[in-house]
Simulated assay, not measured.
Amino acid sequence: MPEWIAVSRTQHAETNFWPRQGYNFAAQDQVIPILIAELTKLLPHYTLGFIQQGEGAHQRYQPVALTGLGGERNLYLHSDGRWLASYVPSVLRGYPFRMAKADNDQQVLAIEQDSLTDDPSAQPLFDDDGNLTEKVQQTLNFLTQCDNNRQVTQAASQRLGDTGLIEPWPLKLERGEGQEPLSVQGLYRINEKAMNELAAEAFADLRNHGALALAYAQLFSMSQLSQLTDRAKFHEKHHAKQADQAASRDIDSLLGGDEDDLTFDFGD
């Protein structure tokens, strides 16, 4: 498990860090948390769902993008660290940084400890004046905006759960001739029938809290289940060591462009 430590001007004034090189840190992630702000970017590439977190009064639903089929491999990750889609979920793009709660419950910038180094060829955290370098400040701004939208996203998910619209999703995927269907456990989805039967007042309440967009996005995204099977087939070919030229054609069909920047303008 990665260890995260708060970035400190006092402790890290002379410390450098290794920036992210690819996405191998997400190699075993089967689901990726998502934000409402990025729904339109996610829909062409991902199947969305919910996972349950916490218990009792602390139970909540986290909206996620599906990136695996219950095994150990993240199907959206190439063996060389490239992401196999033209849009990378925002939660991954800030690495090796993230926002974390300090002892006083304030959100602070944290960094994955193994990314810190004294190597002079790495990038500095702070400049000569003791301020965050431009790259680190840009990352902090991006993560702060993501964190603000995460609160909006959690509130919308809570509304959907409290309204009774989230149900277990017994997902089964066909795997081709001669293979048993694959069952994926622990996922939840929107109950479309229950949503269509909502009273006008309850429907308006979901709309006013941004929850409708999340609900419809999850329902529409279920048509993207083929994205998972396409990537599973790609990995099978890749590990079977087929010809490099054929593998190159396959990956080109999955990658498209490369949206890998630290901007929060998800609506374009």
Score class of each variant (00 low, 15 high):
N131S: 11
N74Y: 13
R60Y: 01
G161I: 00
Q151R: 00
A156K: 11
R159D: 02
R20K: 15
W4A: 07
A213S: 12
D114R: 13
N148D: 09
L39C: 10
E112A: 06
K172S: 09
A6D: 07
F17M: 08
P96E: 07
L125R: 15
G256D: 06
I166E: 03
W4I: 09
I51K: 02
Q224R: 13
Y46A: 04
L109Y: 05
T229I: 04
H58G: 13
T163V: 05
G186Q: 02
G210P: 15
Q245W: 12
A156G: 06
D129I: 00
A100P: 00
D119G: 09
F142Y: 15
I111K: 09
D114K: 14
G186A: 07
A217Q: 03
D258V: 07
E201V: 13
G161K: 00
F17D: 01
S253K: 11
M195D: 08
N74M: 08
D162T: 10
H209Q: 13
D258N: 04
A215T: 11
Q138W: 00
G130F: 09
L39R: 05
A110I: 08
A122N: 09
N196K: 14
I166C: 01
A204M: 12
K237F: 03
I111L: 05
A85I: 02
M1C: 01
L254G: 09
V88T: 14
N208C: 02
V91T: 14
G130A: 12
A27D: 12
R98A: 13
A194H: 04
Q138L: 13
T117L: 10
A232L: 14
E177L: 05
H78P: 12
E134R: 14
K193I: 03
E112Q: 08
S226K: 03
L262M: 03
L262F: 05
D147W: 06
D258S: 08
D244V: 03
L116Q: 05
M222A: 14
R189L: 01
E259T: 06
S79W: 14
P170W: 01
D103V: 02
H238C: 10
P33D: 10
D260Y: 11
Q52V: 04
D258P: 12
L143H: 04
F126N: 11
Q11N: 11
S8V: 08
G161V: 00
P33G: 05
P168S: 00
A26H: 07
L109G: 05
V64Y: 10
E167S: 10
Y188Q: 03
L35M: 02
G49M: 09
F25H: 11
K172F: 02
Y95L: 07
Q154K: 02
G56A: 14
Q59M: 15
D118R: 12
L48E: 11
Y23E: 03
L132S: 10
L77P: 13
K135S: 15
A65L: 15
